[in-house]
Design a protein around this nucleic acid. Structure first.
Length: 482
RNA sequence: GGUCCCAUCGUCUAGUGGCCUAGGACACCGGCCUCUCACGUCGGUAACACGGGUUCGAAUCCCGUUGGGACCA
Protein backbone atom coordinates (compact mmCIF):
# COMPACT_ATOMS: atom_id res chain seq x y z
CA UNK A 1 0.00 0.00 0.00
CA UNK A 2 1.42 3.28 -1.03
CA UNK A 3 0.11 6.15 0.98
CA UNK A 4 2.41 8.60 -0.66
CA UNK A 5 1.17 10.12 -3.89
CA UNK A 6 3.41 9.44 -6.86
CA UNK A 7 2.28 10.50 -10.31
CA UNK A 8 3.99 10.49 -13.65
CA UNK A 9 3.89 12.29 -16.94
CA UNK A 10 5.04 9.91 -19.67
CA UNK A 11 5.37 11.51 -23.09
CA UNK A 12 6.54 9.70 -26.21
CA UNK A 13 9.37 11.76 -27.67
CA UNK A 14 8.08 11.69 -31.22
CA UNK A 15 7.62 15.40 -31.65
CA UNK A 16 7.16 18.69 -29.88
CA UNK A 17 5.27 19.00 -26.63
CA UNK A 18 1.78 20.01 -27.64
CA UNK A 19 -0.71 21.79 -25.48
CA UNK A 20 -2.75 18.66 -24.88
CA UNK A 21 0.21 16.90 -23.36
CA UNK A 22 1.18 20.01 -21.48
CA UNK A 23 -2.28 19.99 -19.94
CA UNK A 24 -1.88 16.37 -18.88
CA UNK A 25 1.48 17.24 -17.36
CA UNK A 26 -0.08 20.19 -15.58
CA UNK A 27 -2.86 18.10 -14.03
CA UNK A 28 -0.31 15.58 -12.83
CA UNK A 29 1.85 18.33 -11.44
CA UNK A 30 -1.00 20.10 -9.67
CA UNK A 31 -2.23 16.90 -8.08
CA UNK A 32 1.28 15.92 -6.97
CA UNK A 33 1.94 19.30 -5.40
CA UNK A 34 -1.43 19.50 -3.76
CA UNK A 35 -0.94 16.09 -2.18
CA UNK A 36 2.68 16.81 -1.29
CA UNK A 37 3.60 13.91 -3.51
CA UNK A 38 6.18 13.24 -6.18
CA UNK A 39 5.98 14.12 -9.85
CA UNK A 40 7.90 11.75 -12.09
CA UNK A 41 8.85 12.37 -15.70
CA UNK A 42 9.25 9.20 -17.74
CA UNK A 43 10.16 9.09 -21.40
CA UNK A 44 8.26 6.44 -23.35
CA UNK A 45 10.64 5.94 -26.22
CA UNK A 46 9.90 2.34 -27.13
CA UNK A 47 8.84 3.48 -30.59
CA UNK A 48 12.46 3.60 -31.68
CA UNK A 49 11.60 4.53 -35.26
CA UNK A 50 9.93 7.78 -34.35
CA UNK A 51 11.60 8.75 -31.08
CA UNK A 52 14.38 11.31 -31.22
CA UNK A 53 16.87 12.85 -28.81
CA UNK A 54 15.89 16.25 -30.09
CA UNK A 55 12.29 15.64 -29.05
CA UNK A 56 13.34 14.65 -25.57
CA UNK A 57 15.33 17.83 -25.18
CA UNK A 58 12.54 19.95 -26.59
CA UNK A 59 9.98 18.40 -24.26
CA UNK A 60 12.13 18.94 -21.18
CA UNK A 61 12.80 22.50 -22.27
CA UNK A 62 9.13 23.30 -22.81
CA UNK A 63 8.09 21.83 -19.48
CA UNK A 64 10.74 23.86 -17.72
CA UNK A 65 9.64 26.98 -19.52
CA UNK A 66 6.09 26.37 -18.36
CA UNK A 67 7.31 25.98 -14.82
CA UNK A 68 6.22 22.37 -14.49
CA UNK A 69 9.08 20.92 -12.49
CA UNK A 70 9.61 17.20 -11.98
CA UNK A 71 11.11 15.56 -8.93
CA UNK A 72 12.44 12.53 -10.74
CA UNK A 73 13.28 12.19 -14.41
CA UNK A 74 15.82 11.33 -17.07
CA UNK A 75 18.01 14.35 -16.42
CA UNK A 76 17.78 14.60 -12.62
CA UNK A 77 17.62 10.87 -11.94
CA UNK A 78 15.96 9.49 -8.84
CA UNK A 79 15.54 6.29 -6.84
CA UNK A 80 13.31 4.62 -9.41
CA UNK A 81 15.50 5.13 -12.47
CA UNK A 82 16.30 4.84 -15.23
CA UNK A 83 13.54 7.07 -16.56
CA UNK A 84 13.63 6.11 -20.21
CA UNK A 85 11.86 3.00 -21.29
CA UNK A 86 14.57 1.92 -23.72
CA UNK A 87 16.82 1.65 -20.68
CA UNK A 88 14.36 -0.55 -18.85
CA UNK A 89 14.04 -3.39 -21.35
CA UNK A 90 15.45 -6.04 -19.01
CA UNK A 91 12.62 -5.28 -16.63
CA UNK A 92 10.05 -6.04 -19.30
CA UNK A 93 11.85 -9.21 -20.33
CA UNK A 94 11.81 -10.51 -16.78
CA UNK A 95 8.12 -9.77 -16.47
CA UNK A 96 7.34 -11.60 -19.72
CA UNK A 97 9.19 -14.65 -18.54
CA UNK A 98 7.25 -14.61 -15.33
CA UNK A 99 3.97 -14.39 -17.21
CA UNK A 100 4.92 -17.22 -19.56
CA UNK A 101 5.72 -19.40 -16.58
CA UNK A 102 2.37 -18.54 -15.06
CA UNK A 103 0.74 -19.50 -18.36
CA UNK A 104 -0.67 -16.01 -18.91
CA UNK A 105 1.34 -15.20 -21.99
CA UNK A 106 2.23 -17.22 -25.06
CA UNK A 107 4.36 -16.92 -28.16
CA UNK A 108 2.49 -16.37 -31.39
CA UNK A 109 4.04 -17.13 -34.78
CA UNK A 110 1.11 -16.23 -36.96
CA UNK A 111 2.20 -14.35 -40.05
CA UNK A 112 0.74 -10.98 -40.93
CA UNK A 113 -0.72 -12.71 -44.00
CA UNK A 114 -2.61 -15.24 -41.90
CA UNK A 115 -3.84 -12.52 -39.59
CA UNK A 116 -5.03 -10.50 -42.54
CA UNK A 117 -6.92 -13.36 -44.18
CA UNK A 118 -8.40 -14.31 -40.83
CA UNK A 119 -9.62 -10.79 -40.47
CA UNK A 120 -11.17 -10.75 -43.92
CA UNK A 121 -12.84 -14.09 -43.37
CA UNK A 122 -14.35 -12.99 -40.08
CA UNK A 123 -15.49 -9.75 -41.59
CA UNK A 124 -17.14 -11.48 -44.52
CA UNK A 125 -19.04 -13.70 -42.13
CA UNK A 126 -20.22 -10.62 -40.35
CA UNK A 127 -18.20 -11.49 -37.30
CA UNK A 128 -16.04 -8.98 -35.58
CA UNK A 129 -12.36 -9.41 -36.30
CA UNK A 130 -10.44 -10.86 -33.42
CA UNK A 131 -7.35 -13.01 -33.09
CA UNK A 132 -8.50 -16.62 -32.88
CA UNK A 133 -5.90 -17.73 -30.39
CA UNK A 134 -4.39 -20.33 -32.67
CA UNK A 135 -0.94 -20.19 -31.08
CA UNK A 136 -2.34 -20.50 -27.58
CA UNK A 137 -2.21 -24.24 -27.97
CA UNK A 138 1.18 -24.73 -29.59
CA UNK A 139 3.20 -27.67 -28.25
CA UNK A 140 6.69 -27.10 -26.92
CA UNK A 141 8.22 -28.80 -29.98
CA UNK A 142 6.19 -26.72 -32.35
CA UNK A 143 7.50 -23.56 -30.69
CA UNK A 144 11.12 -24.67 -30.83
CA UNK A 145 10.68 -25.83 -34.43
CA UNK A 146 9.44 -22.44 -35.48
CA UNK A 147 12.14 -20.65 -33.59
CA UNK A 148 14.69 -22.89 -35.28
CA UNK A 149 13.23 -21.77 -38.59
CA UNK A 150 14.15 -18.26 -37.55
CA UNK A 151 10.60 -17.06 -37.03
CA UNK A 152 10.33 -14.28 -34.52
CA UNK A 153 7.27 -14.50 -32.32
CA UNK A 154 5.12 -11.83 -30.80
CA UNK A 155 4.04 -12.38 -27.22
CA UNK A 156 0.35 -12.39 -26.59
CA UNK A 157 -1.55 -12.02 -23.37
CA UNK A 158 -4.28 -14.60 -22.73
CA UNK A 159 -7.52 -12.78 -22.21
CA UNK A 160 -10.07 -14.77 -20.29
CA UNK A 161 -13.73 -13.97 -20.29
CA UNK A 162 -14.95 -11.84 -17.50
CA UNK A 163 -15.72 -8.39 -16.29
CA UNK A 164 -13.19 -5.77 -15.40
CA UNK A 165 -14.20 -2.85 -13.25
CA UNK A 166 -12.34 0.02 -11.74
CA UNK A 167 -12.95 3.36 -10.17
CA UNK A 168 -11.94 6.37 -12.21
CA UNK A 169 -11.48 9.67 -10.39
CA UNK A 170 -13.10 11.60 -13.21
CA UNK A 171 -15.54 9.15 -14.76
CA UNK A 172 -16.57 7.27 -11.67
CA UNK A 173 -17.11 3.55 -11.79
CA UNK A 174 -16.09 2.00 -15.09
CA UNK A 175 -16.80 -1.55 -16.11
CA UNK A 176 -15.76 -3.48 -19.17
CA UNK A 177 -16.41 -6.91 -20.56
CA UNK A 178 -13.37 -8.77 -21.83
CA UNK A 179 -15.39 -11.04 -24.11
CA UNK A 180 -14.76 -8.96 -27.20
CA UNK A 181 -11.10 -8.54 -26.45
CA UNK A 182 -8.42 -10.32 -28.44
CA UNK A 183 -5.34 -11.83 -26.92
CA UNK A 184 -3.39 -8.61 -27.24
CA UNK A 185 0.27 -8.26 -28.07
CA UNK A 186 2.60 -7.51 -25.21
CA UNK A 187 5.93 -7.78 -26.99
CA UNK A 188 6.20 -6.98 -30.68
CA UNK A 189 8.16 -9.11 -33.11
CA UNK A 190 11.07 -6.66 -32.94
CA UNK A 191 11.34 -7.48 -29.25
CA UNK A 192 10.02 -4.12 -28.08
CA UNK A 193 7.44 -3.94 -25.33
CA UNK A 194 4.06 -2.71 -26.46
CA UNK A 195 2.63 0.39 -24.84
CA UNK A 196 0.16 -1.32 -22.52
CA UNK A 197 2.79 -3.63 -21.19
CA UNK A 198 5.74 -1.30 -20.63
CA UNK A 199 3.40 1.18 -19.06
CA UNK A 200 2.11 -1.28 -16.46
CA UNK A 201 5.52 -2.67 -15.60
CA UNK A 202 6.95 0.81 -15.15
CA UNK A 203 4.04 2.27 -13.25
CA UNK A 204 4.29 -0.58 -10.80
CA UNK A 205 8.07 -0.53 -10.58
CA UNK A 206 8.03 3.21 -10.05
CA UNK A 207 5.43 2.89 -7.32
CA UNK A 208 3.00 5.16 -9.13
CA UNK A 209 -0.10 5.73 -7.02
CA UNK A 210 -2.24 7.69 -9.50
CA UNK A 211 -2.26 7.41 -13.26
CA UNK A 212 -3.54 10.68 -14.65
CA UNK A 213 -3.74 10.64 -18.43
CA UNK A 214 -5.92 11.36 -21.45
CA UNK A 215 -9.25 9.77 -22.24
CA UNK A 216 -7.67 8.03 -25.20
CA UNK A 217 -6.25 5.51 -22.76
CA UNK A 218 -9.56 4.78 -21.07
CA UNK A 219 -10.20 1.69 -23.14
CA UNK A 220 -6.61 0.56 -22.67
CA UNK A 221 -7.09 0.48 -18.96
CA UNK A 222 -8.96 -2.85 -18.72
CA UNK A 223 -6.13 -4.52 -20.65
CA UNK A 224 -3.64 -2.99 -18.28
CA UNK A 225 -5.63 -4.14 -15.28
CA UNK A 226 -5.50 -7.65 -16.67
CA UNK A 227 -1.71 -7.41 -16.64
CA UNK A 228 -1.68 -6.10 -13.08
CA UNK A 229 -3.83 -9.04 -12.04
CA UNK A 230 -1.66 -11.56 -13.85
CA UNK A 231 1.41 -10.19 -12.12
CA UNK A 232 -0.35 -10.26 -8.80
CA UNK A 233 -0.12 -6.52 -8.35
CA UNK A 234 -2.80 -4.09 -7.34
CA UNK A 235 -3.45 -1.39 -9.91
CA UNK A 236 -3.01 2.30 -9.18
CA UNK A 237 -5.89 4.75 -9.07
CA UNK A 238 -6.86 6.08 -12.49
CA UNK A 239 -8.02 9.48 -13.64
CA UNK A 240 -8.79 9.93 -17.33
CA UNK A 241 -9.36 13.45 -18.49
CA UNK A 242 -10.92 14.35 -21.86
CA UNK A 243 -8.73 15.38 -24.75
CA UNK A 244 -8.62 18.86 -26.24
CA UNK A 245 -10.41 19.13 -29.58
CA UNK A 246 -10.13 21.56 -32.45
CA UNK A 247 -12.93 23.98 -33.37
CA UNK A 248 -14.42 21.32 -35.67
CA UNK A 249 -14.65 18.88 -32.74
CA UNK A 250 -11.97 16.58 -34.14
CA UNK A 251 -8.81 15.83 -32.16
CA UNK A 252 -6.51 18.82 -32.04
CA UNK A 253 -3.94 18.58 -34.80
CA UNK A 254 -1.61 20.71 -36.84
CA UNK A 255 -4.24 21.70 -39.31
CA UNK A 256 -5.99 23.56 -36.50
CA UNK A 257 -3.02 25.90 -36.31
CA UNK A 258 -0.51 26.08 -33.52
CA UNK A 259 -0.52 23.05 -31.26
CA UNK A 260 3.00 23.04 -29.86
CA UNK A 261 3.90 24.82 -26.65
CA UNK A 262 6.98 26.20 -28.37
CA UNK A 263 4.86 27.89 -31.02
CA UNK A 264 3.00 29.80 -28.37
CA UNK A 265 6.24 30.78 -26.72
CA UNK A 266 7.59 32.12 -30.01
CA UNK A 267 4.38 33.97 -30.69
CA UNK A 268 4.93 35.76 -27.41
CA UNK A 269 2.63 34.14 -24.91
CA UNK A 270 3.79 34.03 -21.32
CA UNK A 271 4.05 30.67 -19.56
CA UNK A 272 1.65 31.80 -16.86
CA UNK A 273 -0.95 32.65 -19.53
CA UNK A 274 -0.67 29.28 -21.18
CA UNK A 275 -0.83 27.44 -17.87
CA UNK A 276 -3.81 29.48 -16.75
CA UNK A 277 -5.54 28.86 -20.05
CA UNK A 278 -4.90 25.13 -19.98
CA UNK A 279 -6.16 24.67 -16.45
CA UNK A 280 -9.34 26.54 -17.33
CA UNK A 281 -9.93 24.24 -20.26
CA UNK A 282 -12.15 21.63 -18.68
CA UNK A 283 -11.81 22.76 -15.12
CA UNK A 284 -13.36 25.59 -13.22
CA UNK A 285 -11.98 26.99 -10.01
CA UNK A 286 -14.41 26.69 -7.08
CA UNK A 287 -13.66 30.25 -6.00
CA UNK A 288 -14.77 31.66 -9.33
CA UNK A 289 -11.78 33.90 -10.02
CA UNK A 290 -10.31 32.74 -13.31
CA UNK A 291 -6.97 34.45 -13.01
CA UNK A 292 -4.86 31.83 -11.31
CA UNK A 293 -1.22 31.65 -10.41
CA UNK A 294 0.41 28.25 -10.27
CA UNK A 295 0.28 28.39 -6.47
CA UNK A 296 -3.39 29.19 -6.53
CA UNK A 297 -4.05 26.35 -8.96
CA UNK A 298 -2.29 23.92 -6.65
CA UNK A 299 -4.38 25.14 -3.76
CA UNK A 300 -7.75 24.74 -5.39
CA UNK A 301 -7.19 21.90 -7.84
CA UNK A 302 -9.27 18.75 -7.56
CA UNK A 303 -10.53 16.10 -9.91
CA UNK A 304 -14.14 16.68 -8.94
CA UNK A 305 -13.98 20.04 -10.69
CA UNK A 306 -12.76 18.45 -13.90
CA UNK A 307 -15.32 18.29 -16.65
CA UNK A 308 -16.00 15.01 -18.40
CA UNK A 309 -16.58 16.44 -21.80
CA UNK A 310 -13.89 17.36 -24.27
CA UNK A 311 -13.12 21.06 -24.49
CA UNK A 312 -12.53 22.96 -27.72
CA UNK A 313 -9.36 24.93 -28.05
CA UNK A 314 -9.84 28.55 -29.00
CA UNK A 315 -7.37 31.37 -28.89
CA UNK A 316 -9.59 34.12 -27.52
CA UNK A 317 -9.34 33.33 -23.86
CA UNK A 318 -5.64 32.62 -24.11
CA UNK A 319 -5.18 36.03 -25.70
CA UNK A 320 -7.23 37.70 -23.03
CA UNK A 321 -5.19 36.03 -20.31
CA UNK A 322 -1.96 36.96 -22.00
CA UNK A 323 -2.84 40.62 -22.29
CA UNK A 324 -3.91 40.53 -18.68
CA UNK A 325 -0.60 39.10 -17.51
CA UNK A 326 1.31 41.41 -19.81
CA UNK A 327 -0.35 44.43 -18.23
CA UNK A 328 0.83 43.35 -14.82
CA UNK A 329 4.31 42.28 -15.76
CA UNK A 330 7.39 43.70 -14.12
CA UNK A 331 9.23 46.37 -16.12
CA UNK A 332 12.58 44.59 -16.26
CA UNK A 333 11.15 41.21 -17.11
CA UNK A 334 9.15 42.70 -19.93
CA UNK A 335 12.25 44.41 -21.27
CA UNK A 336 14.21 41.16 -21.32
CA UNK A 337 11.35 39.30 -22.94
CA UNK A 338 10.88 41.93 -25.58
CA UNK A 339 14.54 42.35 -26.52
CA UNK A 340 14.65 39.31 -28.86
CA UNK A 341 11.57 40.57 -30.66
CA UNK A 342 13.15 43.99 -31.18
CA UNK A 343 16.25 42.42 -32.61
CA UNK A 344 14.25 40.12 -34.79
CA UNK A 345 12.59 43.17 -36.30
CA UNK A 346 15.94 44.70 -37.08
CA UNK A 347 16.28 47.14 -34.20
CA UNK A 348 19.95 47.43 -33.22
CA UNK A 349 19.16 47.30 -29.53
CA UNK A 350 22.79 47.67 -28.43
CA UNK A 351 22.95 51.09 -30.07
CA UNK A 352 20.11 52.41 -27.98
CA UNK A 353 20.17 53.63 -24.43
CA UNK A 354 18.82 50.75 -22.29
CA UNK A 355 16.79 53.20 -20.25
CA UNK A 356 15.10 54.41 -23.40
CA UNK A 357 14.40 50.85 -24.52
CA UNK A 358 12.97 49.97 -21.15
CA UNK A 359 10.67 52.94 -21.17
CA UNK A 360 9.47 52.11 -24.66
CA UNK A 361 8.75 48.52 -23.65
CA UNK A 362 6.97 49.66 -20.55
CA UNK A 363 4.84 52.07 -22.52
CA UNK A 364 3.87 49.39 -25.02
CA UNK A 365 2.81 47.04 -22.27
CA UNK A 366 -0.84 48.04 -22.32
CA UNK A 367 -1.19 47.68 -26.06
CA UNK A 368 0.16 44.18 -26.49
CA UNK A 369 -1.72 40.93 -26.61
CA UNK A 370 1.38 38.94 -27.48
CA UNK A 371 5.02 39.94 -27.33
CA UNK A 372 5.50 39.58 -31.06
CA UNK A 373 3.03 42.40 -31.60
CA UNK A 374 5.71 44.98 -30.71
CA UNK A 375 6.46 45.00 -34.39
CA UNK A 376 3.29 47.00 -34.95
CA UNK A 377 4.52 49.85 -32.75
CA UNK A 378 8.19 49.96 -33.59
CA UNK A 379 7.85 52.75 -36.12
CA UNK A 380 6.83 55.18 -33.43
CA UNK A 381 10.00 54.82 -31.43
CA UNK A 382 12.72 53.77 -33.82
CA UNK A 383 13.80 55.75 -36.87
CA UNK A 384 14.82 52.50 -38.54
CA UNK A 385 11.17 51.57 -38.72
CA UNK A 386 9.59 54.99 -38.98
CA UNK A 387 7.27 55.83 -41.83
CA UNK A 388 4.01 57.65 -42.40
CA UNK A 389 1.05 55.37 -42.84
CA UNK A 390 -1.34 56.21 -45.61
CA UNK A 391 -4.07 57.13 -43.16
CA UNK A 392 -1.73 59.46 -41.34
CA UNK A 393 -0.69 61.21 -44.55
CA UNK A 394 -4.30 61.69 -45.49
CA UNK A 395 -4.85 63.27 -42.13
CA UNK A 396 -2.30 66.02 -42.38
CA UNK A 397 -2.78 66.58 -46.09
CA UNK A 398 -6.00 68.43 -45.41
CA UNK A 399 -5.35 72.17 -45.61
CA UNK A 400 -6.59 72.82 -42.10
CA UNK A 401 -4.46 70.09 -40.65
CA UNK A 402 -1.46 71.24 -42.59
CA UNK A 403 -1.85 74.64 -41.07
CA UNK A 404 -2.10 73.15 -37.63
CA UNK A 405 0.98 71.10 -38.26
CA UNK A 406 2.95 74.19 -39.23
CA UNK A 407 1.94 75.95 -36.07
CA UNK A 408 2.82 72.91 -34.01
CA UNK A 409 6.23 72.70 -35.60
CA UNK A 410 6.93 76.31 -34.81
CA UNK A 411 5.91 75.93 -31.19
CA UNK A 412 8.04 72.88 -30.67
CA UNK A 413 11.02 74.42 -32.42
CA UNK A 414 10.79 77.44 -30.16
CA UNK A 415 10.62 75.32 -27.07
CA UNK A 416 13.72 74.87 -24.97
CA UNK A 417 14.95 71.26 -25.17
CA UNK A 418 13.82 70.41 -21.67
CA UNK A 419 10.33 71.83 -21.91
CA UNK A 420 9.65 69.80 -25.03
CA UNK A 421 9.53 66.73 -22.89
CA UNK A 422 6.98 68.06 -20.45
CA UNK A 423 3.71 67.29 -22.04
CA UNK A 424 1.48 69.35 -19.75
CA UNK A 425 3.09 72.64 -20.62
CA UNK A 426 3.52 71.62 -24.26
CA UNK A 427 -0.09 70.61 -24.69
CA UNK A 428 -1.19 73.77 -22.97
CA UNK A 429 0.79 75.92 -25.37
CA UNK A 430 -0.39 73.95 -28.38
CA UNK A 431 -4.01 74.45 -27.51
CA UNK A 432 -3.50 78.11 -26.81
CA UNK A 433 -1.49 79.00 -29.86
CA UNK A 434 -3.26 76.86 -32.44
CA UNK A 435 -6.62 77.75 -31.04
CA UNK A 436 -7.58 74.14 -31.44
CA UNK A 437 -8.15 71.25 -29.14
CA UNK A 438 -9.54 67.76 -29.10
CA UNK A 439 -9.43 65.53 -32.11
CA UNK A 440 -8.45 68.10 -34.79
CA UNK A 441 -5.34 69.00 -32.87
CA UNK A 442 -4.26 65.70 -31.37
CA UNK A 443 -5.06 63.38 -34.22
CA UNK A 444 -3.04 65.64 -36.49
CA UNK A 445 -0.24 65.80 -33.98
CA UNK A 446 -0.25 62.01 -33.70
CA UNK A 447 -0.19 61.56 -37.44
CA UNK A 448 2.61 64.05 -37.89
CA UNK A 449 4.85 62.74 -35.16
CA UNK A 450 4.20 59.00 -34.94
CA UNK A 451 3.21 58.45 -38.56
CA UNK A 452 0.23 56.46 -37.37
CA UNK A 453 -3.36 56.95 -36.37
CA UNK A 454 -3.25 54.61 -33.41
CA UNK A 455 -0.91 53.89 -30.56
CA UNK A 456 -0.25 54.58 -26.91
CA UNK A 457 -1.06 57.91 -25.30
CA UNK A 458 0.59 60.88 -26.96
CA UNK A 459 1.34 62.37 -23.57
CA UNK A 460 3.60 59.40 -22.91
CA UNK A 461 5.09 59.05 -26.35
CA UNK A 462 6.19 62.64 -26.83
CA UNK A 463 8.47 62.95 -23.81
CA UNK A 464 10.24 59.78 -24.89
CA UNK A 465 10.85 61.03 -28.40
CA UNK A 466 12.41 64.36 -27.48
CA UNK A 467 12.45 67.66 -29.30
CA UNK A 468 14.88 66.84 -32.05
CA UNK A 469 13.00 63.84 -33.33
CA UNK A 470 9.65 65.57 -33.14
CA UNK A 471 10.93 68.46 -35.22
CA UNK A 472 12.51 66.15 -37.75
CA UNK A 473 9.33 64.18 -38.24
CA UNK A 474 7.08 67.21 -38.42
CA UNK A 475 9.27 68.73 -41.12
CA UNK A 476 9.19 65.52 -43.04
CA UNK A 477 5.43 65.42 -42.80
CA UNK A 478 5.15 68.95 -44.13
CA UNK A 479 7.50 68.12 -46.99
CA UNK A 480 5.25 65.26 -47.98
CA UNK A 481 2.27 67.56 -48.30
CA UNK A 482 3.92 70.36 -50.24
C1' G B 1 -17.84 -4.56 -36.55
C1' G B 2 -17.13 -4.85 -30.93
C1' U B 3 -16.22 -2.26 -26.30
C1' C B 4 -16.19 2.34 -23.94
C1' C B 5 -16.68 7.71 -23.19
C1' C B 6 -19.31 12.33 -23.91
C1' A B 7 -23.74 15.95 -24.80
C1' U B 8 -25.92 23.57 -20.87
C1' C B 9 -25.02 30.39 -24.46
C1' G B 10 -20.36 31.03 -30.49
C1' U B 11 -16.27 29.11 -26.75
C1' C B 12 -14.73 27.45 -21.47
C1' U B 13 -18.05 26.31 -17.83
C1' A B 14 -21.60 26.72 -12.83
C1' G B 15 -25.49 23.62 -11.86
C1' U B 16 -25.65 16.84 -8.31
C1' G B 17 -34.67 16.97 -8.00
C1' G B 18 -37.49 22.60 -5.94
C1' C B 19 -32.81 28.47 -4.55
C1' C B 20 -33.07 28.24 -12.55
C1' U B 21 -38.04 33.38 -15.70
C1' A B 22 -30.37 28.63 -15.90
C1' G B 23 -25.21 31.95 -12.98
C1' G B 24 -20.00 33.43 -14.34
C1' A B 25 -15.77 34.14 -17.81
C1' C B 26 -14.03 34.92 -22.94
C1' A B 27 -15.91 36.52 -27.58
C1' C B 28 -19.65 39.67 -29.81
C1' C B 29 -22.89 44.29 -29.77
C1' G B 30 -24.00 49.17 -27.50
C1' G B 31 -23.12 53.38 -23.72
C1' C B 32 -19.45 55.98 -20.74
C1' C B 33 -14.19 57.38 -20.37
C1' U B 34 -10.90 59.38 -24.31
C1' C B 35 -6.58 62.65 -29.52
C1' U B 36 -6.53 57.06 -31.51
C1' C B 37 -6.13 51.84 -30.30
C1' A B 38 -6.19 49.29 -26.01
C1' C B 39 -7.45 49.35 -20.74
C1' G B 40 -11.30 50.32 -17.36
C1' U B 41 -16.48 50.72 -16.47
C1' C B 42 -21.86 50.10 -17.26
C1' G B 43 -25.45 47.47 -20.03
C1' G B 44 -27.20 43.90 -23.91
C1' U B 45 -27.77 39.48 -27.28
C1' A B 46 -27.16 34.31 -26.45
C1' A B 47 -27.73 27.65 -24.13
C1' C B 48 -30.19 22.81 -20.97
C1' A B 49 -29.39 17.94 -28.68
C1' C B 50 -34.21 15.20 -29.41
C1' G B 51 -38.12 11.76 -27.74
C1' G B 52 -40.17 8.96 -23.98
C1' G B 53 -40.65 7.85 -18.89
C1' U B 54 -40.01 8.38 -13.01
C1' U B 55 -41.82 12.45 -9.77
C1' C B 56 -46.29 17.02 -6.83
C1' G B 57 -41.84 19.01 -9.34
C1' A B 58 -36.19 17.48 -13.89
C1' A B 59 -30.82 20.89 -16.97
C1' U B 60 -30.32 17.53 -12.80
C1' C B 61 -32.65 10.36 -12.21
C1' C B 62 -33.92 6.10 -15.96
C1' C B 63 -34.56 4.34 -21.13
C1' G B 64 -34.21 5.19 -26.27
C1' U B 65 -32.76 8.22 -30.64
C1' U B 66 -29.39 11.41 -32.82
C1' G B 67 -24.69 13.52 -32.93
C1' G B 68 -19.41 13.71 -31.57
C1' G B 69 -15.06 11.10 -29.78
C1' A B 70 -11.66 7.06 -28.15
C1' C B 71 -9.73 2.19 -28.10
C1' C B 72 -9.49 -2.66 -30.21
C1' A B 73 -9.56 -5.12 -34.72
Amino acid sequence: MTLKVRVRFAPAPTGLLHIGNARTALFNYLFAKKEKGTFVLRIEDTDVERSTEASIEAILHDLKWLGIAWDEGPDVGGPYGPYRQTQRLSLYRRAVEELIEKGKVYKCFCSPERLESLRKEQLSKGMMPKYDGKCRFLEKEEISDREAEGLRPVFRFKVDRGGIAFQDLIHGRMSFDSTGMSDFIIIRSDGMAAYNFACVIDDHAMDISHVIRGDDHLSNTPRQILIYRAMGWSPPTFAHHPLILGPDRTPLSKRHGATAVSQYREEGFLPESLLNYLVLLGWSPPEGDEILSLEKMIQSFSFTGLSRNAPTHSLKKLEWLNSHYLRHIDKDRLFHLLLPYLEKEGIPAQQYDPTYLKEVCHLLRDNLTTLSQVRDYLGIFFDEKFYFEEEAQKRFSEPASRETLQKVLKIIEDLPEKAAGVHTSLFHQLEEKTGQKGKPLYATLRAGITGKMKGPELAKILPLLGKERMVKRLKKALELTS
